[in-house]
Design a protein around this nucleic acid. Structure first.
Lengths: 292, 292
DNA sequence: AGAATCCATAGATGGTGTCTATGATGGATA
DNA sequence: TATCCATCATAGACACCATCTATGGATTCT
């Protein structure tokens, strides 16, 4: 049984960070200083790291304490959100569509634009996420649909859509821009941008490692639009699904790199409210028609 | 002192959800059934809502329980992330640059590309966020710099950069596309896309409300690239800072809507490690030069 | 040297999570 | 209809623990 940090101890932690002092923090959370001291000590034992350097003038965060701070805030935020969700009145109905963050804006925009004629006033909320995030949200029922990667799920779970390959992209002004295919060794001198949410990140890494190529890492970002923009600006190159290619960049195929992906429309995990059923059916039919 | 739900009770809650039974859940979390029963009862009192309907065959989530479920998972997720962050080895040094998510990809790409010649092997991590998120991260020391909105901060906090206006964008094929300025009444029949992280969202809303215009809301998304792509695809129109305008959309000025923003480079809140100081200074100078 | 500040330690105590034992309820079966 | 089974709730006992008061130790300032 893995132990878990206690919320009340995180409260103590945040108070110390904010006040820079155990004594003032204790006042803030309405306990005595020894209570707070023992609590911080307990938290340090729970997480397995010292969180504060103690001096007699003020306390300082350790490196571990610094790392914990944003996470502690996030935990509190989530707890507040939980209480808020419980206290809220019933929400107005929406069609909530999760979109894999590596799907191109143009593809999604075109899909939704062409769906527009069939709209009858229902609003759509679009939520980006990774595969796992979208899956979790479908399970949680905080999403109705998800456009994500199809990995052989049965048709009552996910409608199988089209396939697309992964390609390497460079700026149009790049020396390799006119070529159809390149080898890994052509990229030795190049800078590499890491799309940190890339589904084939480890395959890409292995592809280069297997060929003893170590491209120079320049940037890392979870945001694909930014990654493509940086490629277009000549910062470096990267591997992307083909749908992300636009006129600002050139694509080449990597010899020996044949990864591809199939898209899927993931369906609602439970019955939708009566008022959105019709809309949902129309949306499903439309996606099949456009992206099959 | 506002009470807060206990993590160990959320653990009980999730076990009951997963097993559909207090008795089996108790086995799962290694306590006895009466312990678990009392715990769930305590949690229900903490959050102020009944979470389960009890039958003698199985238990069912109430509406409140259903709402709490995803949040409970998120809380656990955050706790796991906290522990993970603490347990990670020391990270390799980086220049961590926060970028306001409403800054255009092209602007950022161009900036970083032109900075590339001055690189000497240090990697950059780019992290998108809202103003508040970036501010928090600077305070947390989980960011070194942030490119965000300048709101009169002193020069040791934020370097004042250029100003840009907010404009209304429509698809190039839109009837209003050739115009320089339009009135709110020109938009009565239009669909509106809501950029949920727009800094002037309330001003925009007030602008239309003051003129008794209620554009039809079609989509809502926190992702600006998606919003612009949907505009380009003809889904609807929206208000954006001018930097987000590209050749796929047309901008018009709204009569009586004069909001603008000034960008700023927010500086490190504490001394950076010796090895990145030189890089940081070069980055600061470069941004001043390019975006002043 | 004395005072002030601040975190740590020690011991006592009330609160609480947990256990065993038992009760109440409803459904299935003979 | 009576009995059995499954399951959640309640009661009482008890070990654990968060918290308190009191005190100690270290450092800085006057």
């Amino acid at each position: 049984m893995v132990s878990m940090m206690d919320i009340y101890l995180l409260r103590y932690f945040l108070a110390v960070v904010e006040t820079g002092s155990f004594t003032r923090a204790a006042d803030r959370v309405f306990v005595t200083q020894p209570t707070l001291s023992a609590g911080i000590k307990k938290l340090e034992q729970q997480v397995g790291h010292s969180l504060f350097e103690r001096t007699n003038r003020r306390v300082f965060l350790t490196d571990a304490g610094t790392r914990l701070l944003p996470r502690a805030k996030a935990i509190f935020h989530e707890c507040n959100m939980a209480q808020q969700v419980l206290d809220e009145a019933g929400k107005t109905p929406l069609l909530r569509v999760g979109v894999l963050s590596t799907l191109s804006n143009r593809m999604v925009g075109d899909l939704l634009s062409s769906f527009r004629g069939k709209m009858s006033g229902t609003a759509i909320e679009i939520i980006d996420g990774t595969e796992q995030e979208l899956e979790n949200r479908l399970e949680d029922r905080s999403l109705d649909f998800a456009l994500s990667l199809h990995r052989g799920e049965p048709p009552d779970v996910s409608v199988s859509l089209k396939v697309e390959p992964y390609v390497f992209i460079v700026a149009n002004s790049h020396a390799l821009a006119g070529r159809t295919r390149v080898s890994a060794s052509d990229l030795v001198e190049d800078y590499m941008i890491v799309r940190s949410r890339c589904e084939v990140l480890s395959e890409t890494s292995r592809y280069f490692t297997d060929r003893n190529i170590r491209p120079r890492l320049v940037y890392r970002t979870p945001n694909d639009s930014r990654a493509v923009a940086m490629v277009a600006a000549g910062v470096g190159g990267t591997v992307v699904p083909q749908c992300l290619v636009d006129e600002r960049v050139s694509q080449v195929r990597l010899n020996g790199f044949d990864h591809e992906r199939r898209l899927g429309l993931f369906l609602p995990r439970s019955e939708l409210p009566e008022q959105t059923m019709e809309m949902a059916a129309a949306f499903t039919a439309h996606v099949r028609e456009q992206w099959a």
